[in-house]
């Protein structure tokens, strides 16, 4: 790693002040992506601002129609908390498929979405569940938050404070993990939110996206059978050493059907 100054503010205001007064600062959440990137010398921030001591970024609350999760809440907490499991089972299941147990103990919701890795899991959940990202200065709908490969709507110094999820009627996530990295080769989150079917796919393009045609078919009948004959064009899908675009297109169809099945209580995934 290149040298940096380490700072550990105890309030959001102090974190923002530290960021703004530094040459080229970086926020540190769980560090499960940032630290490997710094170790490879692909990032060289002048200041690393650790968010671990800011109390308001931690924990979660369940209200009548909403689940609110603090940005610094670990994947392990989201995967294990009984309240989260009972109100959004697909989200809890998703968190339990990220990385491995040790990574889940450190990695955070806020860190994952601010990084917006094209193969990360959380973006699929936020987009499918119509979540709202609350930052230190505004609210951003998930649909507007994830912009492009590793790009979000966040301004340079802007901090994710929490994410609010409307409670869905149904939810499930099915992922085909790369066996080495455990990132999603493709992952599909299926949900019914306010009576409408919503499907989002990750790992298949430079950024998370919705499967609008499949959603329309499911709006009439939220059953995997309604997706029979629906296939996605391979055009524009990711091609890499792990899979061709055609293979990913095929996976999206298979995983979408499985995710709908799981959301309906058939098979695992929720």
């Amino acid at each position: 790693m290149y040298p940096f100054l380490y700072q550990r503010p105890t309030s959001l205001d102090d974190a923002l002040k530290s960021f703004r007064s530094a040459d080229d600062a970086c926020y540190l959440a769980g560090g499960q992506t940032l630290l490997p990137v710094m170790k490879q010398r692909l990032a060289m921030p002048s200041d690393v601002i650790d968010l671990a001591s800011i109390g308001e970024l931690r924990g979660f609350t369940v209200a009548q129609d909403r689940l609110s999760i603090g940005a610094m809440t670990s994947h392990a907490v989201v995967a294990q908390a009984a309240e989260i499991k009972s109100c959004i089972p697909g989200l809890s299941h998703l968190a339990g498929t990220i990385g491995d147990p040790h990574v889940r103990n450190r990695g955070t919701l806020g860190g994952s979405i601010a990084n917006n890795d094209p193969a990360a899991d959380y973006p699929a959940a936020l987009v499918a569940l119509d979540a709202v990202i609350h930052t230190d200065r505004r609210e951003i709908a998930a649909a507007d938050f994830f912009k492009e490969l590793f790009e979000t709507a966040l301004e340079g110094d802007e901090l994710v404070v929490r994410v609010e999820f409307p409670l869905p009627q149904k939810s499930a996530y099915i992922k085909f993990p790369n066996p080495a990295s455990r990132y999603a080769m493709v992952g599909v989150f299926a949900a019914v939110v306010s009576g409408a079917a919503r499907l989002a796919a990750t790992g298949a393009r430079s950024c998370v996206f919705r499967l609008h045609q499949m959603e329309q078919a499911l709006d009439k009948n939220f059953d995997a059978a309604a997706l029979a004959g629906h296939s996605l064009s391979a055009e524009g899908l990711t091609v890499d050493m792990h899979a061709s675009a055609e293979y990913r297109a095929h996976l999206i169809g298979v995983l979408a059907r499985r995710a709908v099945d799981a959301a309906n209580g058939r098979g695992s995934g929720s």
């Binding site: 380490y6 540190l28 560090g31 499960q32 630290l35 490997p36 170790k39 690393v48 650790d50 392990a76 491995d100 147990p101 040790h102 990574v103 103990n105 450190r106 080495a180």
Partner: peptide
């Protein structure tokens, strides 16, 4: 590179990969 787990220790009672923590 936080893949192998040979560096796992407990921090406040939970297992972490100590090569991926300052």
């Amino acid at each position: 590179t936080s893949q192998c787990g040979a560096c796992v220790v407990h921090v406040d009672g939970v297992a972490v990969k100590s090569c991926t923590m300052l």
